Simulated scan of single mutants.
Amino acid sequence: MQVPTPEEIRDKRCELKLTQADIAEKSGLSQSMIARIESGTVDPRVSTLKKIIDVLNQEEISVITARDMMHSPVISVSADETLTATVAIMEKNGISQLPVIEGGVAIGCISESAIVNALDEGRIQKMHAHNVSDFMEDAFPTIPPSTPIETVIHLLHSHHAVLIAEKGKVAGVITKHDLIGMITK
């Protein structure tokens, strides 16, 4: 791990639009200590530096919004799409669930799990004879683009995906896989 220079600490703080007082309050250090570290007049302990870095990292995560993470355009199906065509879309795109959208508004979702459960229960005899509406589940939660990523993470604990709506129409999607990708960046 590379130790950040005083200039890097100051630049990151300014990039996040934080004051030295903000960092001091959140880290439990004094504002004067933050100022001295940023100016390079003091060589801080590792534990002190860690407190500052932890605050900067947490604040950086806090400024990420749904808009920053969303994928667009959203791959979706309509309620009257056949299961055969829906499964083909899932296979082609390597996804396991799709939002069901009518007129730009989410009305439900269809997932591999719902299709497999219906097969297992004997409710599907021939795929081409059924439409998405026959096995549609509740829609994914829909949020505005300005929603903090922490809220998205919370929603993804109990949903496969989260839809982002602008002006009442679905504009993007975030999945659990997208969050995992965020870790590796």
Rank of each mutant, 00 (worst) to 15 (best):
V170G: 03
S78N: 01
D43G: 07
I64P: 02
R13C: 08
I53V: 15
D138H: 11
I64T: 02
T48G: 08
V162S: 09
T86C: 04
L98F: 00
P73S: 08
K12R: 10
I164C: 00
I9D: 14
H130I: 03
E112D: 10
V162T: 01
E38Q: 06
G94H: 10
K17T: 11
A106S: 05
K176Q: 08
T142P: 11
L179Q: 08
E102K: 09
N57Q: 14
V87F: 01
L156T: 08
R123P: 02
P148H: 03
V42H: 00
I107M: 04
Q2W: 11
K51S: 09
L98M: 03
E59W: 00
I64R: 03
T82S: 07
I75H: 05
M1F: 05
T147W: 10
G181Q: 02
M70C: 03
E59K: 03
M127R: 07
R67F: 12
A165R: 03
A161H: 03
A79Q: 15
K176T: 04
H71L: 14
K12W: 12
A171P: 09
L56K: 01
K51I: 02
V3G: 07
L16T: 07
A21S: 12
V63D: 02
G103E: 05
N131V: 12
K26E: 04
V152H: 00
K12E: 12
H159M: 07
T142Y: 15
E166K: 07
K17Q: 13
A139P: 02
E81Y: 08
G103P: 10
L56I: 05
D120F: 13
P148C: 06
E15T: 09
D120E: 12
V63R: 08
E137Q: 08
V74N: 05
M182S: 00
A114H: 02
I34D: 09
A21C: 11
R13D: 03
G94F: 03
L18N: 06
D11N: 15
G28R: 00
H157S: 10
T48Y: 09
R45K: 15
E137A: 10
I23V: 13
V46I: 15
D68H: 06
S30V: 05
A106T: 05
C14W: 13
A118Q: 02
K167S: 15
T65D: 04
E7A: 12
P6K: 10
T175E: 01
D11A: 15
Q125W: 07
V132H: 01
E7C: 06
A24P: 05
S158K: 10
E60V: 13
